[in-house]
């Protein structure tokens, strides 16, 4: 990973996610503001854009899921033909976000995101 901004304590949480093969970057994003809290991204990934857009989509999905009576959102995956965005909202309101290649092991990324969310608290 080249672009890295890791406030103390968040590095190990991001490492859990970025070590999965096919993950191009991981971030912690403030869910309310859509701002970057910490990031560990490969060259060429725009962290600011990932943070703002992931938070916006997360907020829309959260509202829809609450309205559907499905409770809080635990994990979501935006699937695209050239990759994807995988997100786990932590109870604190921080989003743990992974940017992945199309053939990534989604189940494994999900597990690591959940572990990272636990670590972030």
């Amino acid at each position: 990973m080249t672009g890295a901004s890791r406030p103390a304590g968040y590095g190990p949480a991001l490492d859990l996610v970025t070590r999965v093969r096919g993950v191009r970057g991981a971030m912690l994003v403030s869910g309310d503001d859509g701002l970057v809290v910490a990031e560990q991204l490969m060259e060429g990934i725009k962290g600011v854009a990932v943070a703002a857009l992931a938070a916006s989509l997360a907020s829309r999905l959260r509202r829809a899921m609450e309205a559907a009576g499905l409770g809080v959102s635990l994990f979501w995956h935006l699937q695209c033909d050239q990759g994807g965005l995988l997100v786990v909202p932590a109870p604190s309101g921080v989003l743990i976000v992974a940017v992945a290649e199309p053939d990534v092991n989604v189940g494994l990324v999900r597990l690591e995101l959940l572990r990272a969310a636990e670590a972030v608290g």
Partner: peptide
């Protein structure tokens, strides 16, 4: 904006569904 091509779906997991 993220250069991920075309979106094909969103899968989301909630506490109850």
């Amino acid at each position: 904006l993220l250069g991920l091509g075309r979106w094909t779906g969103v899968a989301a997991e909630g506490k109850l569904g």
